[in-house]
Design a protein around this nucleic acid. Structure first.
Lengths: 89, 89
DNA sequence: AAAGACTCGGGTAATTAGGGGC
DNA sequence: TTTGTCCTAATTACCCGAGTCT
């Protein structure tokens, strides 16, 4: 039980999944992802849990996936520093 | 190094290939392209993988594509070979 | 204490998923 | 065999003002 779980903000998780921060909040409200609340009401997510969801660990959907590209993006720049949102409307 | 782990939405990929988002979904369902699912069930595609497909990395004989005679006898190999997966890392 | 950036909450439009048939 | 279009249901994205976190 390594408790080395970094806590991620909704914005961080949203960038990882390429979704809106509000969507991440909905997942927490729906109980699809564990969340910790700060005394002020803001949510925090466990980095280990988020990564498990990204890998699809524990849940295969379609064809088997091999290859395991290590996602080592340290998010130093806080985001793709760019087209975080590709306007398509 | 940046492997380009940006995730694209079905609509983005569809616009890149000039096809319907539904078609992209079928590719994912058929295992021809890797896909990551959000807790809500929506799919996200890796920008690097999509780009490789656009380049034609998955097709080795485009010349044969033109005069392609009827598919008469290649037994459905047990393993679809799964070339979709590019182990170039 | 003050400022900036982010998140919260609700509500509405757009996109996506899945099946069926051409 | 593959793609495009139909439908309904679910999920997601952007709008606002107010509060919280660094």
């Amino acid at each position: 039980m390594d408790t080395g779980d970094r806590l991620l903000t909704p914005g961080e998780v949203a960038a990882l999944f390429r979704v809106d921060p509000k969507t991440v909040t909905r997942w927490a409200a729906a109980g699809r992802i564990g969340s910790i609340r700060t005394p002020g009401g803001h949510r925090r997510f466990r980095e280990s849990e988020v990564r498990a969801l990204l890998e699809g660990e524990g849940m295969l959907d379609e064809a088997d996936e091999m290859g395991r590209p290590r996602n080592a993006g340290p998010t130093a720049s806080t985001g793709p520093a760019g087209p975080a949102n590709a306007g398509m409307y």
